[in-house]
Structures are given as structure tokens and as C-alpha cells.
Design a protein around this nucleic acid. Structure first.
Lengths: 205, 205
DNA sequence: GGGCTTTCTATACTTTAGGATAGGTTCCCT
DNA sequence: AGGGAACCTATCCTAAAGTATAGAAAGCCC
């Protein structure tokens, strides 16, 4: 079977291709970015599967996936990533990808997954999709903040003035001032700007 | 020769190991994080080279490199990364790493580099270190900002007041106000907080 | 030199932010 | 019923931020 492998890390690409060709009886064509992948799809042989790295030049989030799928006439395209969370995998599938391969997956499973997807099946590792999202853990900062405070913090992170936040939340400006003061105390910030940066740093907003 | 390969992406690790063992006559021991690497260094065989992924659980920037080097009694440790910039490579070498391998490097060069480093030589791809930093490209936002404005923006992103920034830069407060106003105009922000968030969003600071 | 940009400073003013203190409501828990 | 928590409002005050306008020094290009 024929596979088109697109990844900007040549080291990963080379060794992955070597492994697939040896262990899986797969013919691999390598490219380093999405543009090259697209032109290869259009001018190259009919690939049984196209495997795209999620963080690669030209991908622009999942827009690159759309571009590739559009050029494949319904034939399978899959995404591979080392960092993307579950939500991205779901979104990729919604857009028409036939699979999502986290790079934490073993190489042998990879061979099977590739063959599986080339046959038209959809593949996502079960443990990846069922894994608990570290929701609260991602925001240790959010703990100790009340709902209101979170709303006000959201305003801060948009650079809103107290007056604007008050209008949006239908409160008085003084009230916002109070919340901002409390926020600064809880976040150990000395002013609104620092509070906003801390929230941003922590991955909120 | 014996190599200890530490990378949390099993897919990358498996294929890399397979490639090295086949093409390079290298015996590879695999681990998935720094803790495992450290205990393997202490209890396992004497590895000719230890190769650590830069973004792997336990690494904590380059602190993990220090830990590993401390356990190697002067024997070679190298860093591998897909994303780290030139500055990190330099820092790693300063800390005592014998090499830095970007994942954009080809697999064949990798085999040579690994053997090279195992012999005690230092290896960094020439094109990687001599490559121009995409300074302006990384920060499309930084274009149009003068040096002073960048300095002031740095202050904003730390939540400093105009007075503090003025003190740090040895300028008058009014001057900072002017720069802040200019910054807000150029960044299309309506106040300092928004300017700071925009800078943060763009990856600056 | 003349024009240009970048930078710094100054004065004067309005608006916003931040702090302190006090009093109020609701709702939940014991 | 009382205590506490989260929330809202008020008044008063100071400090900081932001706006406007104007002048000046330093460097660069032509």
C-alpha cells in the first residue's frame, strides 16, 4: 500500500517511514509541509492514506486538514500529533479525518492503525479518547475564585475598563473595583494588568 | 555501542530506536521520561550516550539536563528537540551537553551524530547554529516597534506601573506615558492591559 | 544644511484605578 | 434564629493612567 507522510521533523519522518516500510510493507512518500503534501496528492500516485502532522508549516490548526481532505476525493486522510488534546482529535474527525494518532502511541500499533485506516476504517486510540481531561488541574488558579470573580477576570483579560465590565455584567462600577481588588489579592498581582497576565499565563482565556 | 533514548512519544522513540539499531549497529534502551532515564543511568549498563528529548515529562526546561549530567560522571549526554530555538541549544552546550539534535535533521545524519557524540565529540548541526533567527518573523507584532517601545512593552507585560518602568529605564514617567500611548495605537489596544495581552498572545514575553 | 525619525521632556488636564470603610442583601448551614 | 459566605452598593479619598500640545536634542539620509 502507498502512504503519504507529511511531517516537518525529518528525523521523525525518516525513521517512521523506514519502520513502516520494513515492518508494514508500506511504500512511503515523504514531504515536509502541507503545501508539498497538497501538490503530491494532486500530482503523485493514488495514496491509500495521507498522514499529516498537526503542527507543521501550513497546517494553520485544522484548516490544513480541510485543504488536504478537499483534494482527496473522499479518500482517507489522518492526523498525527504529539501535543494536541482530545478536543482537537474530535474536531479533526468531525471535519472528515479518518483517524487521529497521538505520538505517544507505540510504533507497532501505528502499523496496524495505518493499515486499518487505509482500508477505510476510522481509528482513534481508545485510551486517548476516554482519558480524563485535566480540567480543574489545568487551572489551579481558578480554584478559590468565585463565579463573579471569574467573570470579572475575563473582562480584565480583554482589557476592559471597570465601567465596561460593569455594563456587561449589569453591575455598578464600584462593585467591579471590589472584585478587581479581591482578584489581585488572590492572584498575588499588584494591579489589573498583572492579574490579566497571570490568568493568561495559567492558560485561562 | 549502547544508547539510552528518552522521549515521551513512543511512536518517535520506537521508530528512532529501530532505525538506529538497524542502520547504526546501536543497542538502544528506551525510557519515556526523565525520572526513568535517571534511574536507568544509575542502575543500568554503562551507556555510551544518553539522548534526552527537550520537551518530556520531568525535563523542566534544561534543569532535567543538569540532573542527567550530574548522574553521568562526565560521560556524554545530548539533547534532542523539535521546537527549541538556537538559544536553548547554546545553553544546553554551556551546561555540559555534548550535542543538540533538532528533529528537523535527517535520520542518516542522526546515526553519524550519535556515533560522533558517543566518541566524546561535540555535535551541533552547522546549519542550525548559523541559521538566522527568525526574530522579526516570530514576532510580526514586533515590527514597527522601536527598541524603546519594546522595552516599555516588556514592562507592561510584567504589570509594572509607568513609574516603575521609568525608574528601570532611567527615564521620566511622562516619557513612559507617551510610549504607552504609542504602543496602544500601534498594537490597536485601548489600554495598557490590552496591549500586554496582545503582546502575550503574540508570543512575546 | 534641510528634512526626517526617534527619542526625551514639560505642562496641564480629565478619566480611571485602587484603597479604605461601612452597610446592605441573599442563601446556606447548624 | 444566628453565623458565615458570597455578593452588591455607597462615599470619600489618593494615586495612577491616559490625552493633548509643544518644544528640543541626536542621528540619519540626501
Amino acid at each position: 500500500m502507498k502512504l503519504l507522510l507529511a511531517d516537518d521533523h525529518e528525523m521523525v519522518r525518516d525513521t517512521l517511514a523506514a519502520f513502516l516500510e520494513r515492518e508494514g510493507n508500506v511504500t512511503v512518500t515523504q514531504v515536509a509541509d502541507l503545501d508539498a503534501a497538497c501538490s503530491e496528492i494532486e500530482t503523485g500516485p493514488l495514496f491509500d492514506l495521507v498522514l499529516l502532522d498537526y503542527s507543521m508549516p501550513g497546517m494553520d490548526g485544522l484548516n490544513g486538514l480541510k485543504r488536504a481532505i478537499a483534494r482527496r476525493d473522499g479518500r482517507p486522510v489522518a492526523i498525527m500529533s504529539g501535543i494536541a488534546p482530545k478536543a482537537i482529535a474530535q474536531e479533526a474527525l468531525d471535519l472528515g479525518a479518518v483517524g487521529f494518532l497521538p505520538k505517544t502511541m507505540g510504533a507497532k500499533s501505528l502499523v496496524n492503525a495505518v493499515k486499518f485506516m487505509a482500508m477505510g476504517e476510522t481509528f482513534v486510540p481508545v485510551d486517548f479518547m476516554t482519558a480524563e481531561e485535566p480540567a480543574e488541574e489545568l487551572n489551579p488558579l481558578a480554584k478559590g475564585l468565585s463565579q463573579r470573580e471569574m467573570q470579572v477576570l475575563a473582562g480584565l483579560c480583554q482589557g476592559q475598563s471597570n465601567k465596561e465590565i460593569a455594563r456587561d455584567l449589569d453591575l455598578q462600577e464600584v462593585t467591579i473595583k471590589l472584585h478587581v481588588k479581591t482578584l489581585c489579592r488572590k492572584l498575588d498581582a499588584k494591579n489589573r494588568t498583572q492579574a490579566a497576565m497571570i490568568a493568561k499565563e495559567a492558560g485561562l482565556y
